[in-house]
Design a protein around this nucleic acid. Structure first.
Lengths: 338, 338
DNA sequence: CTTGTAATCTAAACCGTTTTAAGGAGCGTC
DNA sequence: GACGCTCCTTAAAACGGTTTAGATTACAAG
């Protein structure tokens, strides 16, 4: 039997309406009445039932982060910074953040993303939605949301189409940065440990690798391109393959840091002086590459910025704004040990 | 003008009550009626207003993670695994997880944690609560929750008192493990880079260091104990101090991995063969220590387990159970590079 | 033709707020 | 004394569902 507004009203000798007015500072209430009400609130320890308030107001001040990722992956391991900044940005706008992770399957069948999203839009629990997806988001999957006018932002994927806002990272540009760095150092024999076929980010980084070489007129050697699966072990295997090629490459651009770490380990085990004889370059900007020996230069994904911008856009759309889409640049980083 | 249950009822030619019955599979409804209702639901794309449902049922199927951490720290950087497992465990029990971060201050004054928690308990938005706090939690701060019978679990801190459940990690035991490892290797000159004074976890680890030496009858040397602030740079400074002592220690037990990394860097810069001439040991089990050269053995905090157990206990309490408190052991890990 | 029983369905109360139109009190003016 | 104005307060209608007691119908049995 929690205390309700009626209890307060009774104790203060006024109507519930008056209590509501006092508590929300609306209408004109005499000092005397205000005092009585506040006293009663204090005495009873009354806190409004936010559920009821939300129902009548039709607002919840809550947004949802819906993450579509493979069940075996962990959301906040890679996206930790994103979550941090989403949390910070939404709460500073006075919104709460709820998080739900949806895998590829639901009740045994492939998850119907479209249905799931429609559910979210219609259940009235959320005023807005971040869609974070590991795999590409198709326009039809979000078209219902657009039609309903439900505010949402796609994070980390691009979805072209009217009425959809996304915030993405410029993987192609970042990879071009990496290549520019290596080329400026005079490397011409640059290998690439690429990510899995069909993975959009892997493809973009791969394309940047190719384009950079082509623009410089450097011939592309098939044997310098090895595919990994983004995990460290595959970086090791790839590096072993690369060390069999002749002439040896003088630099290896890895599609992510984990594989770069694996590559570094193999190179060192073989007695190669890394960065003197062979430069290894990563992608992502995970913590661990700061502390390898030597540290691995990399291209940092602005995950914090991603969340911040996504939140700004969502807030704007919630307030009825147009919204927009943004592609964020990566930043090249070289770590020192001091 | 969203579709409501009344719209469905009108279209199906029945009463709202019947629609509700059909949708929740209660009461007895004729096949004919059921079909008509389902058809109307389908045609209108009706989704119940969960807000309204929650209000009448008095349940929300939502729990809150309330994190009290310093504003400048990032929740999911260190607690990423915890969040992952909380997310997984709550959702597998059919609950949603909402997260809110509260700093040390609110509107300029120190945050009144007690008031904040009471708010959460009374606003009826959540059925349960995880309290994650960087600094110690005092019993009076949660006593209101106990009195109200609001289900909650304190994570990563211990709070003794009737009716409170907590899940904590055995830092003392973990540090004893670390020391046992070093002592078994025959080390007698073991230094300690400790964490900040007054920090509970730092103190526990420090105490374990002392106790282990005392039990072995090894004299404690003041100059072998240096205080850091848990950051890498302070680990570097501490190591520099330690390298001035004579005789040199043969092992350094660091109160966390970050400082261990700093210590490792300095040792290598000075040409010390780490693990041959000087063993460095960490604490926490962060990703980066797997990939330093050499990898730093450490004691892993079971953050994933922490979340899992905390969720189990919270669910039990929500269902009216007694709840309990658990202290989880750490695990010693040595990484290989393969 | 009653009566009883089971099968369906619905009216109406309820959940705890907010909001608004209208009611009443007090008071100065003409 | 009637009128018009402020001020303050409240009754009542939402918000969109769930739940329950009881109405209605159909039908078999007596």
């Amino acid at each position: 039997m929690p205390v309700t507004i009626k209890d307060v009203a009774r104790l203060a000798g006024v109507s519930p309406a008056t209590v509501s007015l006092v508590l929300s500072n609306k209408g004109q209430v005499s000092e005397e009445t205000r005092r009585k009400v506040l006293e009663a609130v204090q005495k009873l320890g009354y806190r409004p039932n936010v559920l009821a308030r939300n129902l009548v107001k039709g607002k919840t001040r809550t947004v949802l982060l819906c993450a579509f990722i493979r069940e075996d992956r962990k959301l906040s391991t890679f996206y930790g910074d994103l979550i941090n900044s989403l949390l910070a940005a939404t709460s500073s706008s006075g919104y709460y953040l709820q998080i739900v992770v949806k895998g590829e399957f639901f009740n045994g069948h492939p998850l119907d993303k479209r249905e799931a999203l429609l559910d979210i839009a219609r259940n009235r629990l959320f005023e807005g939605l971040f869609i974070l997806s590991h795999w590409p988001v198709q326009y039809p999957e979000v078209s219902d949301l657009v039609r309903e006018g439900f505010p949402f932002v796609v994070v980390n994927q691009r979805v072209e189409g009217d009425g959809v806002s996304y915030v993405d990272i410029d993987h192609y540009g970042g990879a071009r940065e990496a290549m520019r760095y290596l080329l400026e150092q005079g490397h011409t024999r640059i290998a690439h440990i690429r990510g899995p076929q069909g993975h959009r980010h892997a493809e973009e980084r791969y394309r940047a690798y190719l384009d950079a070489l082509i623009e410089r007129g450097i011939p592309i050697r098939r044997e310098y391109i090895v595919e990994g699966d983004f995990r460290r072990l595959s970086g090791r295997e790839a590096m072993e393959r690369l060390l069999e090629t002749r002439p040896l490459p003088t630099a290896v651009f890895c599609a992510n840091d984990k594989m770069a770490i694996g590559a570094l380990q193999v190179a060192k085990e073989r007695g190669i002086r890394v960065h003197e004889d062979l430069t290894i370059f990563g992608f992502d900007g995970i913590e661990a590459v700061k502390y390898t020996d030597p540290p691995i230069p990399t291209v940092e994904q602005p995950l914090g910025e991603l969340g911040k911008v996504a939140a700004e856009i969502l807030m704007e759309r919630i307030q009825g704004g147009e919204g927009k889409s943004v592609v964020l640049p990566c930043r090249l980083v070289e770590w020192s040990t001091v």
